[in-house]
Amino acid sequence: MITFKRADHFHVCVPPERLEEAKAFYTKVLGLELIDRLDHLFSSAGYWLNIGDLQLHIGVEPALPRSIRHTAMEVADVDAARKHLEDNNVEIVEEPVIPGRRRFAFIDPFGNRMELLQLI
């Protein structure tokens, strides 16, 4: 058996030629804090950012078809988060209703799907 303590980070990929655009989206639109990445340890480019009590790692790979794979993050105010994303022309995806949760997903400009939810 494995005893898990917490999630540490999740990783999304963007096409190599759009890495700087991804940095701008995640720092300026989503408001995440860029943190030091030990670039000398990795053979490919990328960025690390703080997101709540875990990290988002952005890496590069050729563009892939859209998938239902996603990460879900709890937010304090799902309505405010949705409005902020809509105000920034970010694609919103409706999610099926799950009792006890208000939620939706968004697609970042690079095809990564992310769910935001608020427990009710």
Rank of each mutant, 00 (worst) to 15 (best):
Asp39Ser: 09
His84Glu: 05
Lys83Met: 04
Gly111Asp: 13
Ala76Arg: 11
His9Ser: 07
Glu33Met: 10
Asn112Thr: 11
Glu86Pro: 01
Val97Met: 05
Arg37Met: 01
Glu21His: 12
Asp108Trp: 08
Leu64Val: 12
Leu41Phe: 14
Asp36His: 13
Ser43Ala: 02
Arg101Asp: 03
Val90Lys: 09
Ala7Phe: 13
Arg101Val: 01
Phe106Cys: 05
Asp39Tyr: 02
Val29Phe: 14
Ile35His: 15
Ile35Tyr: 15
Met114Glu: 03
Asn50Ile: 08
Phe25Met: 10
Pro109Cys: 02
Ile2Leu: 09
Arg66Asp: 13
Ala81Gly: 02
Val12Lys: 06
Gly52Trp: 10
Leu56Phe: 04
Tyr26Gln: 07
Ile120Phe: 03
Arg101Glu: 02
Glu95Arg: 13
Ala81Gln: 08
Ala80Phe: 07
Lys83His: 12
Ile2Thr: 08
Asp39Asn: 15
Met73Gly: 04
His11Phe: 03
Lys5Asn: 12
Gly100Asn: 07
Pro16Gly: 14
Ala72Arg: 10
Asn112Lys: 06
Gln118Met: 12
Pro15Gln: 07
Phe10Met: 03
Ala45Phe: 00
Leu32Lys: 09
Arg69His: 09
Ala72Pro: 00
Asn112Phe: 01
Ala72Phe: 01
Glu20Thr: 03
Thr27Met: 04
Arg37Cys: 00
Pro96Thr: 05
Phe106Pro: 00
Asp77Val: 06
Gly52Ala: 08
Phe104Trp: 08
Pro62Asp: 13
Tyr26Leu: 03
Arg82Asp: 02
Glu91Asn: 12
Arg18Ala: 14
Val14Thr: 11
Arg66Ala: 09
Arg37Phe: 01
Asp39Gly: 02
Phe106Gly: 05
Val29Leu: 15
Glu86Asp: 00
Asp77Gln: 06
Val14Gly: 08
Ala63Thr: 01
Ile98Thr: 03
Glu74Lys: 11
Ile92Leu: 11
Glu94Trp: 04
Met1Thr: 05
Val14Ser: 08
Lys28Arg: 15
Ile98Cys: 01
Asp53His: 12
Phe10His: 14
Asp87Tyr: 06
Ala7Ser: 10
Leu56Met: 09
Pro109Ala: 08
Ala76Leu: 09
Asp39Met: 04
Glu20Leu: 10
Met114Gly: 00
His70Met: 13
Pro16Tyr: 06
Pro62Thr: 02
Ala45Val: 01
Val29Cys: 12
Glu61Leu: 04
Met73Pro: 03
Met1Trp: 07
Ile98Pro: 02
Phe10Gly: 04
Val90Thr: 14
Asp77Leu: 06
